[in-house]
Design a protein around this nucleic acid. Structure first.
Length: 472
RNA sequence: AGCCCGUUGGUGAAGUGGCUUAACACACUGCGUUCUCAGCGCAGCAUUUUCACGGGUUCGAACCCCGUACGGGUUACCA
């Protein structure tokens, strides 16, 4: 049987880092076996629907180099791939279950349910629907249906025994049937619940490996019962541990850096994000951590996914990102970084801008950092801190160094980095000053601060006129 | 409250009974890089035999068993 996995997000317009990691795992499992990876949109909760969300998901996955074999925008033979377009299918199967005695109509109102819930609460017991509607007579059901009384369809759970969920990562999980709620399969608005639609679609779409967050592990008992009721073969379950925020809590949408798009907009390369995420909860056999997508496909073995949740650490992501930025060639790098430069460059030559940006290629953790780094090249006036002023007065050689450098630089005909560097050497010879006392005074005089790129580069970029002026 | 799962340094983790005096990477710290540096190089970093804690099994345990604690998940006409 051909391996088929699916990514089944709700169309909310956000892609959580945890969701994306699950998608990556799903993709890798499929591609490792030369299988299919599909996208299915779970929009059974109409209140959460967001326009354009499907395209957003396509865009995100495309950026990550994850190809969708079948989905709403490229349908295969198992469509439709949007759950709200499959309502009649769910209804048909729900009724089949009713017929078989594994499900029943329930006419209970919100108020009735609320009452039951409160009672359960008082006794500190989890709420379980008491199944009263399963005892309704055929006639009563007919009558209610005829009168248009709103209904849901509930799954009839066994009251005794246990159901076993077999998971690739967590092994065999035993769930006592007595704690299983007669969960709703079909809502009164005619939409299926996630729990139902999922099972139906996974089966109908010939999904072989169901990969999802660990929060669904317990629930899989209910799904198994559904598969059994239909007489369908169960998929292979791979429940993956959760990703927590750096505070140890569940990632939330509020936390900006937990969303893929936010990271992307900050200037993180999708390759770096994918590489980082895949190592969150999974480790390869060989001792290696930088992977291309092709290498991941080859190396990925879901059995090596861990059981415990992991904490998202942006520092390591930054390290990966820096590594990937360095690997870009100059052209790619410039195309990547230019949008993050917000200073006005209209008066500057392309060559100047490129040179400036290139200096920082090996130093950036993410794109947005560029502005802060190039600040000194865009500010007209410089201010020298008190400490630095004092430093300039701390040695009698310093004024001589500055004066000599100024005069030598003035004599220079060609303004290029090598020549500027050579001038520093001349000053060293003439004054006999070297090291910190040579470089630092010049650096502070021309930029105001003690940090920056290599001095010749810095001098070159600031420009002849300004440098000479500041050295006076 | 019931049920399920987890617990190896600040983080990702390797390790599944002797090869572990617990890899590797990030972070951090120090040193070097004839100036700075978020870059590069090197070193240090679980040290009350230590893998949450306490017992047990075993000649031998991070690895097996039991209990405790802590963390997370779940118990919706949300997914």
């Amino acid at each position: 049987m051909k391996t088929r996995t699916r990514f089944a997000p709700s169309p909310t317009g956000f892609m959580h880092i945890g969701n994306l990691r699950t998608a990556i795992f799903e993709y890798l499992v499929a591609k490792h076996d030369n299988g299919d990876f599909l996208l299915r949109i779970e929009d059974t909760d109409q209140t959460r629907k967001v326009d354009g969300a499907i395209d957003f998901i396509y865009d995100t996955l495309k950026l990550c180099n994850i190809e969708i074999d079948e989905g709403p925008n490229n349908e295969g033979e198992y469509g439709p791939y949007v759950q709200s377009e499959r309502l009649d299918i769910y209804k048909k199967y729900a009724l089949e279950l009713v017929e078989k005695g594994h499900a029943y109509y329930c006419f209970c109102t919100e108020n009735e349910l609320e009452e039951m819930r409160e009672k359960a609460n008082l006794r500190h017991k989890p709420f379980l629907y008491d199944g009263r509607c399963s005892k309704l007579s055929k006639e009563k059901i007919e009558e209610n249906l005829k009168n248009g009384v709103p209904y849901v369809i509930r799954q009839k759970m066994p009251k005794v025994g246990e159901t076993i969920v077999e998971d690739v990562i967590y092994g065999k999980i035993k769930i006592d049937n007595s704690i299983l709620d007669d969960q709703i399969l079909l809502k009164s608005d005619g939409f299926p619940t996630y729990n139902f639609a999922n099972v139906i679609d996974d089966h109908l779409m010939a999904i072989t490996h169901v990969i999802r967050g660990k929060e669904y592990l317990d629930q899989s008992a209910k799904y198994n019962l559904l598969y059994e009721a239909f007489g369908w073969e169960k998929p292979t379950y791979i429940h993956v541990p959760m990703v927590l925020g750096s505070d140890g809590n569940k990632l939330s949408k509020r936390n900006g850096d937990a969303s893929f798009m936010d990271l992307y907009n900050e200037g993180f390369l999708p390759k770096a994000i994918v590489n980082y995420l895949v190592l969150l909860g999974w480790s390869p056999e060989e001792n290696k951590e930088v992977f291309t997508m092709d290498e991941l496909i080859k190396a990925f073995n879901p059995k090596r996914i861990g059981k415990s949740s992991s904490t998202y650490d942006i520092k390591k992501l930054e390290w990966f990102n820096q590594k990937y930025i360095k690997e870009l060639n100059d052209e790619e790098y410039l195309a990547f970084i230019k949008p993050y430069l917000t200073y006005d460059i209209s008066g500057k030559s392309n060559e100047w801008v490129d040179k400036l940006l290139l200096i920082y290629k090996d130093h950036l953790s993410y794109g947005k950092q560029i502005d802060e780094m190039v600040k000194i090249f865009f500010e007209d006036s410089i201010s020298i801190s008190k400490e630095n002023e004092e430093f300039l007065k701390s040695d009698e050689n310093i004024p001589i160094v500055i004066k000599t450098y100024h005069d030598e630089l003035e004599k220079l005909n060609n303004w290029d980095v090598d020549a500027i560097a050579e001038v520093i050497n001349i000053v060293k010879e003439k004054t006999g000053v070297k090291g910190k006392l040579l470089y630092m005074p010049i650096r502070i005089k021309i930029s105001g601060v003690e940090h920056g790129p290599e001095l010749p580069d810095e001098i070159y970029l600031i420009g002849r006129e300004k440098v000479l002026d500041r050295l006076k």
